[in-house]
């Protein structure tokens, strides 16, 4: 049972020429994911969601803030990073580029097993490799293990990538757009696989995506990000069915949903939903009830003005 806690994570990128103003990719981002739960982090390109993923697996060093496992901040540095990564793993977006084209599948899966001491002998390794292949439903296992990435389909590759992430027997899994590069007809299959694996292994999963529909259906809570900041958070159904922040409304309206009626944009929705808290500051994880619905107060925020105007236009047009 492991809880991932991301607290006040901030990342500034210095502009390329050095002295210019820093670009704040992630601004005071906090989230808690408990074991056996999926939390979706939703946002469009440039919202900072991938930077959050990379900070969570220590590919990027945060400018400020910390990542805690069970309330403890793990040490940093070579050895400690390795230990950390035996607990926190990641599935990358593009299975076409996240597997080394020049190494066979067996090698790429066996490495994490050996690095993290999961197996001690060749026989154990063989057994564990077959177990991993079975866990991600790849068969015939022995044959696939012998292959190179280019001999596999996109879906098969992503299964291999998931198996690699599972190899160190992690407690936390960061899935960064794990299906956006795959053909639509196999996306749900892969997400279902991740969901099953979460249940079987009691994983805490942070599911990063731009797709609201799968975010709603595969996670218990949704955090919506825009320009590095959280604009809305709450239980999945609450956020999708009663979106309050203008940006969330824009996202919900934009997502194709032919099976439902048209979505009504409503800037005053919060007035009819007193259970939604509007706030200028991100809620504090220690005191904040996890399931509560929160939205960033946009009413006095100059940065959101154009957004509000766009939405007002849409609301008027649909009336």
């Amino acid at each position: 049972m492991t809880t991932l806690e991301v607290r006040h994570l901030t990342k500034d990128y210095r502009s390329h020429r050095g002295h210019g103003a820093a670009l704040r990719a992630v601004d005071d981002f906090s989230v808690r994911v408990t074991a056996g739960e999926t939390v979706a982090l939703v946002g469009e390109s440039g919202s900072g969601k991938s930077t959050v993923a990379k900070m969570a697996v220590r590919l990027v060093t945060p400018t400020a803030g910390e990542v805690l496992l069970d309330g403890v901040a793990p040490a940093r540095g070579g050895r400690a990073d390795k230990r950390y990564r035996s607990r926190v793993q990641m599935v990358f977006q593009d299975p076409f580029s996240s597997l080394n084209p020049s190494l066979p599948i067996a090698y790429q899966l066996a490495r994490p097993l050996r690095i993290h001491g999961v197996v001690r002998s060749a026989a154990e390794e063989e057994r564990e490799l077959l177990r991993l292949m079975e866990a991600v439903n790849l068969s015939p296992a022995k044959e696939v293990l012998r292959k190179y990435p280019h001999e596999l389909s996109g879906g098969q590759r992503q299964r291999v990538a998931i198996a690699r992430a599972l190899a160190p027997r992690p407690e936390v899994l960061i899935a960064d757009e794990p299906v956006s590069m795959l053909d639509v007809s196999i996306r749900l299959e892969i997400l279902q696989l991740l969901d099953d694996l979460k249940r079987e292994n009691d994983l805490a999963v942070l599911y990063i995506t731009h797709d609201l529909a799968t975010a709603r259906h595969f996670s218990s809570r949704i955090v919506v990000m825009r320009r590095g900041r959280v604009v809305e958070r709450g239980r999945s159904d609450d956020v999708i069915l009663t979106p309050v922040h203008p940006y969330t409304q824009l996202l919900v309206r934009a997502a194709p949903d032919p099976a439902s009626g048209p979505f009504a944009v409503d800037l005053q929705r919060y007035e009819r939903h007193p259970e939604v808290t509007l706030g200028a500051l991100d809620p504090d994880l220690d005191t904040w009830p996890e399931d509560a619905h929160w939205a960033r107060d946009w009413r006095d925020d100059d940065a959101d003005r154009s957004l509000v105007e766009e939405l007002t236009g849409l609301a008027a047009a649909s009336r």
């Binding site: 639509v184 007809s185 749900l188 299959e189 529909a213 259906h217 919900v252 949903d257 439902s260 979505f263």
Partner: peptide
């Protein structure tokens, strides 16, 4: 294919097999 696109505001999709 239709099952592959879960409805955003509708009910949970019947998740498909290949």
């Amino acid at each position: 294919l239709l099952r592959s696109f879960p409805s955003l505001r509708g009910d949970m999709p019947a998740t498909g097999t290949r």
